Simulated assay, not measured.
Amino acid sequence: MTIKQSRIISTVLSPACGVWLRSQVEQVKELQVKISGGDRQILGGYIPHISIIADHAVYQGLHLSKINLSAENIRINLSQVIKGKPLRLLEPIPVTGQMLLEETDLKASLASPLLSNALTELLGTLLTSAGINQPNELLKDNPIKWQQVTLDNNQLTIAGVLANKSDNLTPVAIRTGLELASSHVLRLAPLHIDTPLESASRNLDSFELDLGSEVDIEELKIMPGQLVCRGSINVIP
Rank of each mutant, 00 (worst) to 15 (best):
S116R: 08
I42K: 03
L178C: 07
S112H: 11
S183D: 12
I35F: 03
S70L: 05
L169Y: 14
L169D: 00
F207I: 00
G124I: 05
L180M: 11
L87R: 08
A130K: 11
E214A: 15
L169I: 05
M1R: 06
K221M: 10
S36N: 09
V149S: 01
T157D: 05
T120N: 09
S70R: 10
H63F: 06
Q60I: 04
T96Y: 13
E218G: 09
L169Q: 15
K4S: 09
R230Y: 01
Y59L: 13
V19I: 13
Q148D: 11
L43Q: 04
S36I: 06
S182Y: 11
A163Y: 05
I53E: 01
I144R: 03
P48C: 05
T176A: 00
A108I: 01
V33Q: 00
L156C: 03
T170K: 12
T150N: 15
D152Q: 15
L162K: 05
D141R: 15
L186I: 11
D141G: 07
A111T: 13
R187H: 01
V95H: 02
E91V: 02
N164T: 02
L13D: 01
R202W: 07
C17G: 03
R202C: 11
S206H: 15
P94Q: 06
E179W: 07
E218Y: 06
I132G: 00
N142R: 14
E30L: 14
V25W: 00
W146G: 02
S10M: 06
G45F: 12
A130Q: 01
T157S: 10
I76G: 08
E137P: 04
L197H: 06
R175K: 09
V185G: 04
K221A: 14
D216S: 14
E179M: 09
S116M: 06
G160N: 07
R7L: 14
D210Q: 01
E219K: 15
R40W: 09
E121H: 07
K140T: 11
K140S: 12
R40N: 12
